[in-house]
Structure formats: structure tokens, C-alpha cells
Amino acid sequence: MNWKAFITGVAAGATAGHFINHYLLEPKTISGDVILENVKEAFKKEGPIEGSWIQLKKQHYKKFAMDTFVYHGGITAIRDGEKKQFEFIADATTGTIIDVYLT
């Protein structure tokens, strides 16, 4: 067996394995803009909204057994004839809203 060919094959396999793991298997995050649009659509079902914002920098979030990265954002909406401000926390990987609260 030619050792040079063997070592080249091992190196090529390790490199391919690294790229497959890094680009295909690692969880991808959803854009903060997409999450904000989804939250706005959900709020529009209950009434008009006046404004919205989201921090595009992901932040680490740990609560009990949940350990993930999240986006923080907010919505200003008209509810019962009054302007109310809500803030939300959304999982950056799945886009799931973790919490919504009135500020």
C-alpha cells in the first residue's frame, strides 16, 4: 500500500467530514427580521399595531433546563382602545416565541 495515497485519503476524508459537520449538521439560526415579521402577523390578528423593533444581536438565554440563543423584541399595539407595549423573547434557532409580556 502506498502511504502517501493513504495519508492523502485520510486528510481528504477528515476535511470533508469537518465541512459536512460545520455547514450541514450544525443548527442554523433564523433571521431576526423573519421572526419580527412572524410576531407582527400574529399581533395583527388581534388588532392594529403601531410599531415594532427587534435586537438583531443574539443573546444567550438560560432558564431552567432551556439553554439557547434568543432575540429580544417589542411590539406597540392598540388593545382595548389603548396603546400598549409588549416585549417578546424568541428562540434564534427555531423562531419559537418563548415569552411575551406587557411592559
Rank of each mutant, 00 (worst) to 15 (best):
M1S: 15
N2T: 07
N2I: 06
K4H: 07
K4D: 08
A5G: 09
F6Y: 15
F6G: 04
F6L: 15
V10H: 02
V10K: 01
A14M: 06
A14G: 04
T15K: 03
T15R: 07
T15M: 12
A16E: 02
A16V: 11
G17K: 05
G17H: 06
F19I: 13
F19P: 03
I20T: 11
I20F: 10
Y23A: 13
L24R: 11
L24A: 14
L24H: 11
L25P: 08
L25E: 06
K28D: 09
T29A: 14
D33G: 10
V34M: 05
V34W: 01
I35Y: 00
L36T: 00
E37V: 12
E37M: 11
E37I: 11
E37R: 11
E37Y: 07
N38V: 08
V39W: 01
K40S: 03
E41I: 04
E41C: 02
A42Y: 03
A42S: 12
F43K: 06
K44S: 11
K45P: 01
K45C: 03
K45A: 09
K45W: 02
E46D: 14
G47K: 09
G47P: 11
P48K: 15
P48Q: 10
P48N: 12
P48W: 05
E50G: 15
G51I: 02
S52W: 00
S52K: 05
W53Q: 04
I54R: 00
I54W: 00
I54L: 01
Q55F: 01
L56A: 03
L56T: 04
K57N: 09
K57W: 02
K58C: 01
H60Y: 14
H60E: 12
Y61R: 08
Y61M: 07
Y61N: 07
Y61G: 08
Y61C: 07
K63S: 12
K63F: 14
K63Y: 14
K63I: 14
F64C: 11
A65K: 12
A65F: 13
D67T: 08
T68S: 12
F69Q: 10
F69H: 13
V70T: 05
Y71W: 02
Y71N: 00
H72F: 08
G73M: 00
I75V: 08
T76S: 13
A77Q: 10
I78K: 15
D80R: 15
G81M: 09
G81I: 06
E82Q: 14
E82L: 14
E82H: 12
K84V: 12
K84T: 07
K84N: 06
Q85C: 05
Q85N: 15
Q85A: 10
F86G: 01
E87L: 03
F88M: 03
D91L: 02
T94P: 08
T94W: 08
G95F: 02
I97H: 03
I97T: 08
I97G: 01
I97K: 06
I98D: 00
I98R: 02
D99C: 04
D99F: 03
D99G: 06
D99T: 10
V100E: 03
V100L: 06
L102A: 04
L102F: 06
T103A: 11
T103F: 06
T103Y: 05
